[in-house]
Every structure is written in C-alpha cells, then in structure tokens.
C-alpha cells in the first residue's frame, strides 16, 4: 500500500516535470534556430489555456471513443512516467515492472491515434495508418533492447533491480557490456520515433496531414493529448538514463548530499538524454516519408537490437 501511496504522490511531480522538460526542449530548439523562444513555463500556460477552452466534438465522430481516448492516453503515459520516478524516490522495486511501463507508454500512443481515427476525419485515418506502421517499426527494437539489458541485470524485469545491478557492479550498464551498449544505442535511437517528433513525426506531420490524429481535438481533450505526449518524452528519457547510464557515483551522491541530490542528478541526466535524442534530431533533420522511416528502423535499430539480445544471451 505504501508503494501505491508513493506512486500517487509522484503523479503531480510527473505532471510538473514533463511540462518543464517540454519547456526546456522548446527553448533550446528555439535558440538553435536563433530565435528567442517561449518562456520555459510556456507549456503550463498552454495547458491551462486549453483546459478552459470549449470542447468541440465533431458530429461524424464515434463519441464515446473520441471522448475517452485523450484521458486514457494521458493517464497511461503519466502512470508510465510515475512508476520509474516513484521507484527512484522510494528506492524499492515493489511496483516497477518494466513490461508494464513499456506497455503503458505504447498504450498511450495507440490511444492517441485511436481517438484520432474515431473522429471521422480522413486526416485522422491517414494518421492512424501511419502510426501503426511506425509502431511496427520502432516498438520491436525498443522492447528487445529492454529485454536484452534485463537479462544482463539478473535476469530481472523489475525496474529497480536493474539500477541495483548497476550500483553493485560499480559500472553503468552501457559501459559494462557490449550487449548493453548496443541495447542503449538502440533505445536512444528509438526514442524520437516513440515520442513522434521530427524526423519521425510522420503520423502527425503538420504540413502533410495537419497533425493527423489531433486534428479534431480541441480544448481540454487537446490539453490532455499534449500532456500525454510530453510525459511520454519525459518517461522515455528518464528510462533511457536510469536503465543504461545510472553511474554509481550518482548513488554515492546521496551519502554526501542527501537523497534529493541523487534524484536531481537523475533528472539532469534524463534532461541531457532528451536534448540529445529529441531536441537535436528535430532541429537538424527534415521529416522522413513513412516508407523511408520504416526502412530506417528495420535496417538499423532492429538488427542492432537482435545482435544485442544474442550477445547478452551468450554472456557478453
């Protein structure tokens, strides 16, 4: 029960952090384009503004699915982000099943496109078919890379066990084994597709399908969808950092400076991961076509993930 309480207490923290991360992302993106950019708390303004706006449901929409999916998407991605964060704060592995976390994050992005395709708008339908294509592309390498490191750390699929393994072995996993390093690279490559930013924002490409699934959403529903997206970004960066790059020195910080320091170091690390895997690609690449993106993922991260899995089974 304590674990559940901690989890519930983490939810508002996830909300704040994911919007803050989005704000930093936007600011850095703007500075790379030599713009001034919005204030860092701009996502909070956007969220609040959208909450008080009118909610419009198109007549062609399948009402129940259309209305339910934003809440489901936001809830699952926030919980998906809260589980690792709660584990980090509580330092237990009591509710930290990695399969559950990955499932929740995938659930969130599927709910977004399901809602979009139920809107009755042809652009929503195009966005749906594109997203499913993308899911097949990136989800398999992403999952394989998680399985690959969980074999190395135990084998255990408990989130905190993987961190403990890193503390015990006195090395972060990405530096310890070749297989885990490959897995880390795969995971990092998959983040930008999993969160759907340029070059892989194909399902919701603005100039092609006008935000695809989001096209008919407005007001609070849109706010929830945006929140779902930014907390997915936050969650994946946090996972990427703590699963692969949890340096034991971060743990030792808590002995000197207290537990807050460890958490802060983790968040700083995941911020770096986000800047590297989300902000930088979306600044320096053009959007790919769906066929090109699909090919990219099947020819590069997928073989890498399989290699990593085989290496880890062989004990490298």
């Amino acid at each position: 029960m304590i674990a559940l309480e901690i989890l519930l207490a983490t939810l508002p923290l996830v909300f704040l952090l994911s919007l803050l991360f989005e704000g930093i992302d936007r600011k850095v993106h703007a500075r790379m384009q030599r713009r001034i950019g919005p204030p860092i708390i701009q996502p909070f303004y956007d969220f609040i503004k959208l909450l008080v706006k009118e909610n419009i449901v198109p007549t062609t929409a399948a009402r129940s699915i259309f209305n339910a999916s934003p809440s489901l998407a936001a809830a699952s991605s926030i919980v998906g982000a809260a589980i690792p964060l709660a584990n980090l704060i509580a330092r237990t592995g009591i509710i930290g099943d990695l399969i559950l976390v990955m499932y929740l994050l995938t659930m969130s992005s599927i709910m977004i496109v399901v809602g979009g395709s139920s809107s009755g708008n042809p652009y929503g339908a195009v966005g749906f078919s594109r997203k499913i294509m993308m899911l097949i592309g990136y989800e398999i390498p992403l999952l394989i890379s998680v399985v690959s490191i969980s074999i190395k750390a135990g084998p255990s699929l408990i989130y905190y066990d993987i961190i403990l393994a890193q503390i015990k072995s006195d090395k972060c996993l990405a530096c310890a084994y070749i297989s885990s390093a490959t897995a880390a690279l795969t995971f990092l490559l998959c983040i930008s597709a999993a969160v759907g930013v340029v070059p892989f924002d194909i399902p919701e490409a603005k100039t092609e399908v006008i935000h695809g699934p989001l096209i008919e959403y407005s007001g609070p529903q849109l706010a929830l969808l945006k929140l779902a997206k930014s907390s997915t970004i936050f969650s994946l960066s946090l996972l990427a950092f703590t699963l692969f790059f949890y340096f034991p020195t971060i743990y030792e910080l808590s002995i000197v400076l207290g537990e807050i320091a460890t958490l802060g170091a983790c968040l700083l690390g995941s911020l770096m991961v986000m800047l590297l895997t989300v902000t930088l690609p979306r600044t320096v690449f053009a959007r790919l076509k769906i066929g090109q993106a699909f090919k990219t993922y099947w020819f590069f991260p997928l073989p890498m993930a399989i290699t990593s899995l085989m290496l880890s089974v062989l004990g490298w």
Partner: peptide, 16 residues
Amino acid sequence: MAYQIGFDTLFMYTWA
C-alpha cells in the same frame, strides 16, 4: 520548401 518537409531550422536560417 524547408518548412514543408518539416525542416524548421533551415526555414528560420533562410528567412533570416
């Protein structure tokens, strides 16, 4: 053209 292919940075540089 850069904006249409989702390349906002190039768009900003060109318009500068």
